[in-house]
Computed example of a mutant assay.
Amino acid sequence: MKPEENIRIGISIGDLNGIGAEIVLKTFEDSRMLDFCTPVIFASTKTIAFFKSHFNYQVTFQSINNLNQVVHGKVNIFNCWNEQVKIEFGKEDTKIGEYAFKSLQAATKALKNNEIDALVTAPINKFNIQSKQFKFPGHTDYLAKELEGESLMFMITSNLRVGLLTDHVPVSEISNHITPELIKQKINTVYASLVKDFKIQKPKIAVLGINPHTGDNGVIGKEDDDILRPTLREIKEEGKLVYGPYAADSFFGSNNYKNFDAIIATYHDQGLIPFKTLSFGQGVNFTAGLSKVRTSPDHGTAYEIAGTGKADENSFKEAVFSAIEIYKNRRDYQELTANPLKKVARTDRR
Rank of each mutant, 00 (worst) to 15 (best):
A100L: 07
N176G: 12
D225N: 13
I326S: 04
E223T: 08
A311C: 01
I178K: 03
A265T: 04
I96V: 14
D197Q: 05
A106I: 01
K328F: 07
F101N: 02
S131N: 09
Y191P: 00
V59L: 01
I87V: 15
G271D: 01
Q84K: 14
E148C: 13
D224F: 11
Q201M: 07
N128P: 02
G215R: 11
G253Q: 11
V71S: 07
T214G: 03
L290Q: 04
K258W: 04
L34M: 05
E146G: 03
S12C: 10
F36R: 15
V171Y: 06
M33Y: 12
N66G: 08
K95E: 14
L336H: 06
R350L: 15
F134K: 08
Y333S: 15
N217Y: 13
I87Q: 04
D93N: 12
A319W: 01
D225W: 02
E237R: 15
A345E: 12
Y333C: 01
I116Y: 05
N329C: 02
K74V: 00
G20L: 02
V169M: 05
K126R: 14
L208C: 10
N125H: 11
E5P: 03
H54S: 02
L104A: 09
D332L: 15
E115T: 02
E22W: 03
A118K: 07
K2Q: 13
N211R: 09
L241Q: 14
S193H: 13
K135R: 11
N339I: 12
L152C: 15
G300P: 07
N79G: 08
N255E: 14
F316D: 06
K126G: 09
L278F: 14
H213T: 11
A247N: 10
F51G: 00
R349W: 06
N128S: 10
E115G: 03
G215N: 12
V85N: 02
D298A: 05
T189W: 01
P297H: 06
N68T: 15
K112V: 10
V59K: 00
I9N: 03
N314T: 15
Q334L: 15
F321H: 14
I116C: 05
P274A: 15
I129Q: 04
Q62L: 00
E146T: 05
D216F: 03
A265G: 15
P340S: 08
G209Q: 13
L272S: 09
G18T: 03
G289C: 05
A144N: 13
G253C: 08
G244F: 01
N76Y: 02
I7K: 12
L228W: 07
K135F: 10
G307K: 05
D35R: 13
I13T: 12
N176K: 15
V344C: 03
P3R: 04
N159W: 07
D261W: 04
V71T: 06
G307A: 06
Q185W: 00
R8K: 14
G149C: 09
Y246W: 11
A100C: 09
H299Q: 01
F42T: 00
G281H: 11
Y142E: 05
A100Q: 07
F198L: 13
V71A: 10
M1E: 09
F101D: 02
F321Q: 12
E150M: 08
I235K: 03
L194F: 02
T108R: 07
V242R: 06
G283N: 12
N256G: 00
D269C: 06
S151M: 10
L278W: 07
E29V: 03
H299T: 02
R32N: 15
